[in-house]
Design a protein around this nucleic acid. Structure first.
Lengths: 345, 345
DNA sequence: AAGGTTTCCGCAAACCTTTGCATAAAACTT
DNA sequence: AAGTTTTATGCAAAGGTTTGCGGAAACCTT
C-alpha cells in the first residue's frame, strides 16, 4: 500500500522549514512571517494535508470517536436510533463504533471494555434488558467518563438518559381501548428488569385502575416475545375461558404475527378483537387491517443522545449528572382498533 | 476524566527499569532476565495493561479498523450484512466504522475520504445504486488499498466482490411462475446502473425467452420503488388492458404493499395473481398469504466480505485481484404463488 | 554605534510503542 | 588477573502533532 497522507514533516522538508513552523502556520498561532505562512498554506492545500487523527488522539487524549452499545439493528426502532446518533456525529466530525449485545449482559460488559480500550471519547448505551448489575457503568461514572443512556432507565445510575414516555403511552392506549368498548385487554410485554415493557405495564395497570377494571394476570404475557414464538402466546390467550377483546403487543412485528393468529382463528379485527403495536414500523400501515400503534421517536432519541454526549465532551454540561429527558411518543390510530363513537354535540 | 489506562511508562517507573525493557518483557522478545520479566508480567497483569491502539496505529500504520460503506440499515437485508461483517471483525479483534450513503454517489465519495482519513485498514463497500463514476474506488485500487465490494458489481473494477446469483434466482422464480400457469409476469425492479435489479431483469428476460413468452415493457416497473410509493406502481399495473397474473417485487416490503393493493382491488392471491418478493424478511411468513420470496444470504455475504478483507490485510491473498464470489440464494415457496401441479408418476 | 525590542523560527518534550544498536555488567576463558 | 564472551539493559529514533522556551536576526532607538 502506498503512502497517501501528507504529514507536517513532508511539508516542512519540502519548504525547508521546521515542523513547528508548519504547524504554527496551519493553525495560525504564534508569530509567523506572512510569506512563510502563505507558502505553507498553499502546499498544505495542494497535498490535501489533514492532521493525522492517531497522532492527535495520542496528544489530546481525544479520538473524536463515540462508542455505541445497542442490543441489535435488525429492528426498525434500534436502527433508527443508530441513524439519529450517526447523523449528529457526522455533522460534528465524530466517528461511531457500534457494539451489539443482543441484550446479553456479558456482551455488554465486554463492549464497554472494548470501547474503552479503543479510546472512545464517550459511550452511548442502550442497556441490555436482562441487566441487573450496573458496575460496568458505575465504573465509568466513577471515572467521570461521558456516558449517555438511551431507551432504558437504570434508575440507580447518575447518567444522562434519553427516554420515552412508555408509562403514558401505554396508559393512553389502554384508555383509548376502554373507551372504544374493550374490557379484557391483554398485554404482551417484556418484563425483564430494564425493559421498557415494565413501564408500559405500570401505565396499563394505572389505566385499568382508573376505569375500575380488575387486573387479570392471565392477560399478561411476558415470555415468548419473538416474532415467531409470539404465535404461541397469542394462541394461549385465545384458549382462555374468557378470551381478550384487545391485545397490546410489545412491537409491530409481534402485532403482525398476532393478527395472523387471530384471523386464522376466524376472529375479525377490530370487531371481535383489537390489536395495538409499538414502534410504527414502515410496514405497519400496510397490514390488514392497518395497525394502530405507538410511534416512537427513535431518530430523535439518537440525535438527542449524541447531542448530550457532545455537550459533556465540550464541557458545556457537566459529566454524568442524573438528567432524564423524556420524549413524547404518539398513538397512531389506524384500523386494527375500533373507532371512538363520535360524541354528538 | 481520570487516567484509566496503564502505559509501558507507568510500569517502567514503578519497577525502575526502562520502557524498552518492559516492552521486551511483555512480548517476550530479545534477551531479558527471567526475574525482571516475571515482575513486569505481574505488574502488567495487575494494571490490566494493554498496548495503546493509537500508539500502535502510528507505529505500525495499521489501526485494526475496517470501514464499511452501506446504503442504509433500516432494511433487514443490509442490517444483516452488517451483522455478518461485525461478527467476523469481532472474532478477529477488528473494529468497524460504518458510513451510510442512502445510495448517493456524493455521500459515498465523502465516505471513502472520511474512512481513509480515519486510517482504516480496509474498506468493505456496497456501492451506491446510482453510481456511474468509479474513480473513488479506482484510486483505492491504484494505491493498493484493500477493498471488498458486496452485493453490487462494478464490472470494470478489479476488486474482490461478494455477490448473489440474482440472474439465476430471478430466472428460477420466473420459470416457477410460468410452470404454475402464469403468463403475464410483471417485474418491479430497480434499474439503476449498479442495482442487482438489472441482473434480475436479465434473468427474467432469459426465462421468458426460453418459454417463448414475449417481453412486454409495460410489465416492467422501475420507478417508485419505495414501500410507500410502490402503491402507485401496483395500481398502474392493474389498470393495464391485460393486467399481470404475477408480480415479482424488488423486496418483501414492496411485495407487502403490493399485496395490499391487490387485495383492496378484490383480487385473490394467488388464485388471480401471484406475488413474489426478495429478501425473506422476518415478517414475510406472517403476511396473508405467506409470501413466496427469495431468501438472500446477507449474513453470509457480510462474513465472507470481512474474511476476504482480512486475508488481504494478512497478505494471504494479494490485494485487489478481480475475484467474484457468487453466493446462492434460495426461493422460499409459500402461499402467495400457486402450487405446482404434482406430476403423476 | 551600541543597546534594547521585535519578529520569526527551531529545539525538545509529551503522548505511547517497538526495535536496532550500544553499553554495562556479569560470566567465562586461559 | 587479564581478556573474551555472554547476558541484560538502556538509548534513541520513528510514527505525527502541539506548544513552551530560547535564540538569532532584524528592526528601532538615542
Amino acid at each position: 500500500m502506498k503512502k497517501s497522507h501528507a504529514s507536517l514533516k513532508d511539508i516542512a522538508i519540502e519548504l525547508n522549514v521546521s515542523i513547528s513552523t508548519v504547524s504554527r502556520a496551519l493553525r495560525n498561532t504564534g508569530e509567523i512571517h506572512p510569506e512563510t505562512r502563505k507558502l505553507v498554506l498553499e502546499l498544505a492545500e495542494k497535498l490535501h494535508y489533514k492532521p493525522n487523527p492517531l497522532a492527535m488522539g495520542l496528544l489530546k487524549n481525544k479520538t473524536q470517536t463515540i462508542g455505541v452499545i445497542i442490543p441489535e439493528i435488525e429492528n426498525y426502532y434500534f436502527s433508527n436510533i443508530l441513524r439519529g446518533i450517526d447523523k449528529v456525529a457526522d455533522d460534528n466530525g465524530y466517528r461511531i463504533i457500534t457494539c451489539y449485545t443482543n441484550d446479553s449482559q456479558i456482551a455488554e460488559v465486554r463492549a464497554v471494555n472494548d470501547l474503552l480500550f479503543s479510546r472512545v471519547d464517550g459511550i452511548i448505551a442502550c442497556p441490555a434488558n436482562e441487566l441487573t448489575d450496573y458496575v460496568h457503568f458505575q465504573n465509568l461514572i466513577d471515572d467521570e467518563f461521558p456516558i449517555v443512556h438511551v431507551d432504558r432507565d437504570c434508575t440507580d445510575l447518575a447518567t444522562t438518559k434519553i427516554l420515552t414516555n412508555n408509562f403514558t403511552s401505554a396508559y393512553t392506549v389502554v384508555e383509548y381501548l376502554i373507551t372504544t368498548g374493550c374490557k379484557r385487554i391483554a398485554l404482551i410485554t417484556n418484563l425483564e428488569p430494564l425493559s421498557v415493557g415494565r413501564q408500559r405495564y405500570e401505565g396499563y395497570q394505572e389505566a385499568l385502575r382508573k376505569h375500575r377494571i380488575p387486573l387479570d394476570l392471565q392477560l399478561i404475557i411476558h415470555e415468548n416475545l419473538g416474532i415467531g414464538t409470539s404465535i404461541e402466546s397469542a394462541k394461549n390467550l385465545l384458549k382462555l375461558t374468557t378470551p381478550p377483546d384487545a391485545i397490546i403487543c410489545n412491537n409491530d412485528s409481534v402485532a403482525m404475527a398476532t393478527m395472523k393468529v387471530l384471523k386464522d382463528s376466524g376472529l375479525r379485527i377490530p370487531e371481535d378483537i383489537s390489536v395495538v403495536g409499538f414502534s410504527d414500523d414502515p410496514f405497519s400501515s400496510f397490514l390488514e387491517p392497518a395497525l394502530t400503534t405507538v410511534s416512537l421517536p427513535a431518530y430523535l432519541i439518537g440525535m438527542k443522545a449524541m447531542e448530550a454526549i457532545l455537550q459533556m465532551i465540550d464541557n458545556k454540561i457537566s459529566v454524568n449528572k442524573d438528567i432524564r429527558i423524556v420524549m413524547d411518543s404518539a398513538v397512531v390510530i389506524r384500523n386494527s382498533t375500533k373507532k371512538l363513537v363520535s360524541k354528538t354535540v
